[in-house]
C-alpha cells in the first residue's frame, strides 16, 4: 500500500517528545515514589515525608517564600506595567525592553552577579540569608510579572474606564472598580509564572543564602544527590500535586475570561 501523507502525521514528533520527556519521566517519578529500595511497592516514602519535621518545614517555608514572592512581585510589577502601557508616560517599547531584558540572561549567571553586588553592599548570605534570598527571587521573577501584566494593560478597554468615570467614579474608584477587574487575567497569569517556579527554585536560595535556606527544589536536589531516589521522587510527586491544585484554582478565572472573549467575536 502506498504511503499517503496526512496532516495528522505532523504531530508525531510532538507526541514522541511528549512521551519521552514528559510521560515516561512522570511515570518514573511515580514509580520511585511508591516503591522501596528493592523495587517493591510501599508507602515508606510517604510515611517518611509526613513524619519528618524537617521536610514538612521545608515545604512550609517554600510555600511562604512563594506566596511572599508572588505578592511582592505583583505589588511592584503592577504599577510598572500600568505606567509602561500608558502612552502618556511611555511612547516607545524601549523602556519595556529594559525591564524585560534580564530574562534573556542566563539566570545562574545573573544570580551570581546579584550575589556579588549584594556582598559588595554588605548584604550577603552570611549576614542576612532571608533578605538576600527574597531580594534575589523578586529580582529574578519581576520580568515574568511585568510582561503578562503589560500585555493585559495594553488591552484595557478605555471606554469602560470612561464609563466608570461617567457613572461617578473618582480616580481611586476607577482604579479599583474598572482597571483592576479588567486586569485580573493578567494578574492570574503573572501569579502562575511566579508561584510554582519559586517553589522549585534551587539556584537562587542556594547561591544567595550560601546554602542556609533550603527550599523544596534544593531539598529534592539534595535527596537525589545523596541517592535517596525514593523519598526525593515522592517530594517531586508532592510538587506535581501542588501544581495541579494551583492550576485548578486559576482555571476558574481564566476559563471565564476566554469565554467572554469568544462571545465578543
Amino acid at each position: 500500500m502506498k504511503f499517503r501523507f496526512q496532516r495528522k502525521y505532523l504531530c508525531i514528533p510532538y507526541f514522541l517528545f511528549l512521551i519521552l520527556f514528559v510521560i515516561i519521566p512522570i511515570f518514573f517519578i511515580v514509580y520511585y515514589a511508591f516503591t522501596d529500595g528493592n523495587g517493591a511497592f510501599s508507602f515508606d516514602s510517604l510515611v517518611e515525608f509526613f513524619t519528618t519535621t524537617n521536610k514538612i518545614n521545608v515545604l512550609v517555608q517554600s510555600l511562604l517564600f512563594s506566596t511572599l514572592n508572588t505578592i511582592i512581585c505583583l505589588v511592584i510589577g503592577y504599577p510598572i506595567a500600568y505606567i509602561l502601557a500608558n502612552k502618556k508616560y511611555n511612547s516607545n517599547y524601549v523602556i519595556v525592553l529594559l525591564f524585560v531584558m534580564p530574562m534573556w540572561i542566563n539566570f545562574v549567571l545573573r544570580t551570581g552577579a546579584t550575589r556579588d553586588v549584594l556582598t559588595w553592599l554588605g548584604v550577603n548570605g552570611g549576614t542576612s540569608p532571608y533578605f538576600a534570598t527574597m531580594l534575589g527571587l523578586v529580582y529574578n521573577y519581576l520580568p515574568f510579572v511585568i510582561l503578562p501584566l503589560y500585555t493585559t494593560m495594553l488591552k484595557l478597554d478605555k471606554s469602560q474606564i470612561e464609563a466608570a468615570i461617567d457613572l461617578g467614579c473618582n480616580r481611586v474608584q476607577v482604579f479599583t472598580k474598572s482597571i483592576i477587574p479588567q486586569s485580573i487575567p493578567g494578574v492570574i497569569a503573572a501569579a502562575q509564572m511566579v508561584f510554582m517556579p519559586t517553589m522549585s527554585s534551587y539556584v537562587i536560595p542556594e547561591t544567595l543564602s550560601e546554602g542556609k535556606i533550603v527550599l523544596f527544589g534544593n531539598s529534592i536536589y539534595l535527596g537525589f544527590a545523596n541517592n535517596q531516589w525514593n523519598s526525593s521522587s515522592f517530594m517531586a510527586v508532592i510538587m506535581l500535586v501542588i501544581i495541579g491544585i494551583s492550576m485548578l484554582i486559576t482555571r476558574n478565572f481564566t476559563e471565564k475570561d476566554t469565554s467572554e472573549e469568544d462571545a465578543a467575536w
Binding site: 469602560q160 470612561e162 464609563a163 474598572s178 477587574p181
Partner: peptide, 20 residues
C-alpha cells in the same frame, strides 16, 4: 470632571463592564 456632572453617556460600543 465627568463624575461631577449630572450627565450620563451611552457609549459607541456600549462599554459595559464585562466583569459584572
Amino acid at each position: 470632571p465627568p463624575n461631577k456632572r449630572p450627565i450620563n453617556m451611552v457609549f459607541q460600543r456600549y462599554a459595559l463592564f464585562s466583569h459584572l
